[in-house]
């Protein structure tokens, strides 16, 4: 009870909390580009980052993640209340015409808000449901 043991660390492991645990070893290769102080890699479609600053492993991981994200359904907000009306990431109400992304758990966000988060952690911010697990089940059952 109450054992707050700790080991020092400099990396934000939450960014690597994905499916590939061996890639989250901070001792492998150069530091990942999302450490504190280093500008965060932020591969939304309109942001590019010099590829030479990424290791091959990181490029593969990012490409894989982008591929997975692109399988998640998107849509445009049409005023339907069923889709919820607020994006909890930016805390803004959806406005007609906003690009949305729907996660398998049925939580809905602005596309640009959730894509940014999904590059860091592949879980739904609202229910903490792992997105990839849900994706796989969807594939298997269909």
């Amino acid at each position: 009870m109450g054992n707050c043991l700790k080991t020092p660390t400099t990396d934000d492991i939450s960014l690597l909390r994905g499916n590939d645990s061996q890639e989250s070893d901070p001792n492998l290769g150069p530091p990942p580009p999302y450490q504190e102080r280093v500008p965060v890699y932020h591969p939304s479609p309109n942001v590019s980052r010099p590829a030479n600053q990424l290791t091959e492993e990181e490029q593969i991981k990012i490409a894989k993640r982008l591929g997975l994200i692109s399988h998640l359904p998107t849509g445009v907000y049409d005023g339907s209340v069923k889709k919820g009306k607020e994006c909890v990431i930016c805390m803004c109400d959806f406005v007609l015409g906003d690009s949305l992304r729907f996660l398998p758990c049925m939580h809905t966000y602005h596309k640009k808000c959730i894509d940014d988060w999904l590059m860091r952690a592949f879980i739904c911010p609202s229910c903490m449901e792992p997105v990839d697990a849900a994706l796989l089940t969807t594939y298997e059952s269909s």
Binding site: M1, G2, T7, P8
Partner: peptide, 9 residues
């Protein structure tokens, strides 16, 4: 945030 906490309980 630089501390890697171990959340025991």
């Amino acid at each position: 945030k630089k501390t890697r906490w171990w959340y025991h309980d």
